[in-house]
Amino acid sequence: MAGNRELPLDLLIVAGFILITNIFVLVPVLSGSFLRTCLGIFLVLFLPGYALAGAIFPAKKDLEGIERAAISFGLSIAVVPILGLSLNHSTWGIREVPVLIEFSVFILLMCVVAYYRRRLLPEAEAFRVSFKTYFSSVKAKILEKPESKTDKIIVFILVFSILASMGSLAYIIGNPKEGEHFTEFYILGKNRTTEDYPTEFVQGEKGTVIVGIVNHEYRPVDYTMEVRLENRYLPLPESQKQVSLGNNMSWEEPITFTPPFEGKNMKLEFLLFNETEKTVPYRNLHLWINVTEEA
């Protein structure tokens, strides 16, 4: 069998598209643009299925142009939940950068498989993209009279459904509905876990915890965090922190405190106030600590 040595144009375009999408997602000055959203939609809804279809159907005769486009959407819808589920059970979780890396690696890997399988075919039989021929084929499928009226209706419904799905998803992502308004407030131990908190002190000894705030209020908020022991303020600046956050912004810093008096089972409180209520804590957390007299 003759090997097709020339790198396929469609696979080069896919690789270039992945590179551009990564740039728009990872570069801060570009990550806020609407184009980033459009690129992300295409990366999720079309490219995984297109690359997989290329790996499964390397020959021209396997699929026609419009059929290859339609099955690319269908395979993407089938593959994306599997990729998401695998990432959800990994140590990275479903976050922006891990999702981007996983999708990019999967698509590029399928492109490599598709290229290898096309090389095994005679050059005349391997699938190649000629955009002029491709769009002429799509136009003929849609506008010219097919074998029957039923075929024409099916093709129209298929194309309309794909375009409607992409448009709806773009609108939803571009105009997200507001969810519940809330603020995350948490403390972590020295190893950044929900354990190993400092609870045993000698009077005058310092303790450190990591305090985090995440704003999901759909508006900028000015927070005030106070630290109290047995409802008494700790010495400034340990006892108070001012934090201003925009929507979906987060703040996390180590907070060091020094219990000023001894006692057992004392309540060390971390109180979070928002800009609208200065007397009643909006969120509160606490630790129970023991402070003994210095030997």
Rank of each mutant, 00 (worst) to 15 (best):
R192D: 14
T193F: 07
T194A: 14
E195W: 08
E195V: 08
Y197K: 06
P198H: 04
P198C: 04
P198G: 04
T199K: 03
T199A: 02
F201N: 02
V202F: 10
V202H: 09
Q203P: 02
G204M: 11
E205R: 05
E205F: 05
K206V: 08
K206A: 15
K206T: 14
G207L: 01
G207W: 00
T208K: 14
V209K: 00
I210S: 11
I210H: 13
V211P: 00
G212L: 04
I213T: 01
V214W: 04
V214N: 08
V214Y: 09
H216E: 13
E217V: 03
E217A: 05
R219A: 14
V221D: 00
Y223P: 00
Y223R: 01
Y223S: 01
M225T: 03
E226P: 01
E226F: 06
V227N: 01
R228P: 00
L229N: 02
E230T: 10
E230Q: 10
E230V: 10
N231W: 06
R232G: 04
Y233N: 15
L234P: 02
P235Y: 02
L236G: 08
E238D: 13
S239Q: 07
Q240W: 05
K241P: 00
Q242N: 14
Q242G: 07
V243L: 04
L245S: 05
G246A: 11
G246H: 10
G246E: 13
N247V: 09
N248K: 13
P254H: 07
P254N: 05
P254R: 08
T256N: 08
T258Y: 03
P259M: 05
P259Y: 01
P260G: 08
P260R: 06
F261E: 11
F261Q: 10
E262L: 06
E262P: 03
E262N: 09
G263M: 05
K264D: 14
N265P: 09
N265S: 15
M266D: 04
K267N: 15
K267W: 10
K267P: 03
L268T: 03
L268G: 00
L268H: 00
L268E: 01
E269W: 03
E269H: 10
F270W: 07
L271R: 11
L271M: 10
L271Y: 05
L272A: 07
L272F: 08
L272G: 02
